[in-house]
Amino acid sequence: MKVIRIDPFIKVTNFQDHVMAIGFFDGIHLGHQQLLRHAKNIAEQQNLLFTAMTFDPHPDEVINNEKARNYLTPLSEKIDKMEKMGVDALFVIHFDRTFASLSPADYIQNYILELNTRHVVVGFDFRFGHKAQGNTQVLAQAAKQSDFGLSVIPKKMYDNKKISSTLIRECIQAGRVEVIPFYLGANYQIKAVISNTHTIGIFQLDPIENFIFPKEGSYNILLMVDARSIPAVLQCDRGKWMLMVRERITNHQQTVTIEFLSQAMVKKTMTM
């Protein structure tokens, strides 16, 4: 997959005709997956490239001055998941105040038409342009006038709730990691580094990148390390994460994947 970064000083010209899915796609949850699969199917039917467009950082960091925002999928993870979804090229738009000030018409001209987009796929609640003035109705009118296709994907529900990145964030922050597969389609995962050995079988864990972490407590997890999936317990107390594992880990200071399964009942607190 080709990753194409675009900012106000970089323009992409003569790009091959393509079908483009647009969204922030934090988590790439089941609703996002439905949207991306729809775009991929159209691209295959029309023998076009399958592309996606996302934004970095999150608009709230710029518009609402929200600093140090955490993500379900930081950009590097999002890129990896997009590639696994079969995306041929990913446009990453640098979201700054210049981009945020674009009118809906300028956004359509600069980031849809000039990229030779033949079909656009967005979610039902997609907003764009200055102060989110653009919506799917504005996009539909432009599609009719400029002769590009448009698909608007309806919301995806589970248990009478709309699947959304916000809902998933709230569940994780409340420690309800066991419900996440119903929304993500998989257990929630983060990347971290095993940094110190405190005692036999107990390690300190340092998160890498800006992942969302569950609230303080103990969690049953799978530790992906050394090509193995090892059952373990992860405990957070006063902002420190400690890993309790019965199998031997020989290579410290390595990046590992933590897959959250459920909250755990741990009677004795690990020494921090």
Score class of each variant (00 low, 15 high):
V12E: 14
K40H: 06
T255Q: 15
V225Y: 10
Q204Y: 06
I79K: 03
T98K: 14
P57T: 00
K156R: 15
F24Y: 14
S229E: 12
H198G: 06
R176I: 13
K268F: 10
P154I: 08
I10N: 06
E247R: 14
K267M: 09
P59H: 05
I153Q: 00
V122G: 07
R118A: 09
M157A: 11
Q173V: 03
Y183T: 10
T166N: 10
I108Y: 03
D56N: 14
D7L: 04
Q109I: 04
I212N: 00
P181F: 04
V87W: 03
H119N: 08
K78T: 02
F213L: 11
R238T: 11
R97N: 15
E216C: 09
H32N: 10
L102S: 04
I172N: 03
Y107W: 11
V256P: 03
M224N: 15
H58Y: 04
I10S: 04
M242H: 13
N64P: 08
A39V: 01
N70A: 01
H198W: 14
I258S: 01
P207L: 02
P181I: 06
E170P: 09
G201C: 08
Q33M: 12
H38D: 09
R97Q: 15
T98W: 12
A264S: 14
S101P: 06
A132G: 06
T98A: 12
Y111G: 02
K268Y: 07
T13D: 07
L48S: 01
C236A: 15
N160S: 08
Q109K: 15
L223K: 10
Y71S: 03
Q189M: 01
K81G: 00
R69G: 00
